[in-house]
Design a binder for these strands. Structure first.
Lengths: 208, 208
DNA sequence: ATATACATACCGACCAGTTGGTATGTTGTC
DNA sequence: GACAACATACCAACTGGTCGGTATGTATAT
């Protein structure tokens, strides 16, 4: 029996618990006690690993970056030869992720940054890094697609990458408001349509 | 001296205070005491007008709907003869609203629904109504634009209207994460570009 | 005109429960 | 035996909410 396994992993259990609890109730409404209960850990363990609730918030945002980073890095859409196909594939992948209850497919950092952007700068910055890094990962494919089609656009690859994240974050808000994933899928479809119009046949001629 | 003025307006003062305080700190992190202090009102007055904090949340969402409803109803973009111009005008208007600090231009109900969608059904529904009604107000113009151009689209006016709200809500999240309005404006620009591609010259031929 | 009756608007002390955080153990490991 | 990884007990501050009370307005009957 790996006795070591029960020891030393309180931090991980807290971090994992934070992902689901905070996505369900929000950061402020989530108490330390609740987090400990969900993780099956005592309060002493909590403050042994995190010197404050805010530090847990920062760590949770970073944890989220790691997990989602790994998920998207190994996703199959990277295999497409055409960069545009990879971008569309990414968005189809995000649509396919809209499974289960709303708390299960929504974004931790999008939720957290709303509550803490003015009151907890460290959390805001960790959330910003998570979103911005994820967006930055899309830039090379967007740039390649622009080059392929010789697009002389009045927008940058970076701004389009951020726009995809805006649509996704907004789609999550609508899903929360309406209590279902359907709206979110519709919004992603509109984004896909936008990309196809931007990069599709005759696109270079339409833009100048 | 209007002695009456000092009476009876505690409710309004609380509602107005709620708009700014909740947009800054979020719903959960805003305490009743804080709300009272910001409104210059006592706790007794609070619970005289609202039987619970949650009821204040619902009332604040409705108050927000009223205020924003009036703002957009009297906005100048309705004067355009062309329905597409009205839609683009609406989005330009929203871009022009990105002034001042982040808490001043972001959306109350978008913020609130993130925190309460699972825990406070009444607030969720009030926020949903605010967003959905606002989106619904855009539908007639979208439908008219589709009719004008004889678009046989595989998307509905309703879904496009909701998509505009998703982009706006997402733009606010990015603005909060990055600490400035610039990203939000860029995202609205992408949305405007999408609409121009959807409805612009040759659009009917491109879609089938 | 005025007394009675009642409703509305508001005040502020108070309460029980919860909050984030701390101080002091205990236990296993190198 | 030193140190990390926890557990337990506890605390002051704050939380949403209650409650008895007061000031003011209004309808009605006399």
């Amino acid at each position: 029996m790996p006795k070591v396994a029960t020891r030393q992993d309180a931090r991980q259990k807290l971090l994992d618990a934070a992902l689901s609890v905070i996505r369900t109730k929000g950061y402020s409404a989530t108490s330390v006690d609740e987090l400990c209960a969900a993780a099956g850990v005592t309060k002493g363990a909590f403050f042994h690993h995190f010197k404050s609730k805010e530090e847990l918030g920062v760590a949770a945002a970073n944890h989220w970056s790691q997990i989602t980073g790994a998920l998207f890095a190994q996703a199959p859409y990277h295999e497409h030869a055409d960069p545009l196909a990879r971008i569309i594939g990414y968005l189809e992948f995000r649509k396919a992720l809209l499974q289960g209850g709303v708390p299960e497919f929504t974004c931790l950092v999008g939720t957290m940054v709303q509550e803490s952007y003015e009151t907890a700068p460290a959390i805001r910055e960790a959330c910003n890094a998570s979103i911005s890094d994820h967006a930055a990962a899309l830039e090379p494919d967007i740039e390649a697609a622009m080059r392929d089609r010789a697009l002389a656009a009045d927008w940058s690859a970076a701004s389009l990458a951020l726009h995809t994240q805006a649509v996704l974050q907004g789609a999550f808000i609508l899903a929360k408001a309406k209590g279902g994933a359907a709206v979110a899928a519709d919004s992603i479809d509109h984004l896909i349509r936008y990309l196809k119009l931007l990069f599709g046949p005759g696109a270079a001629e339409r833009q100048s």
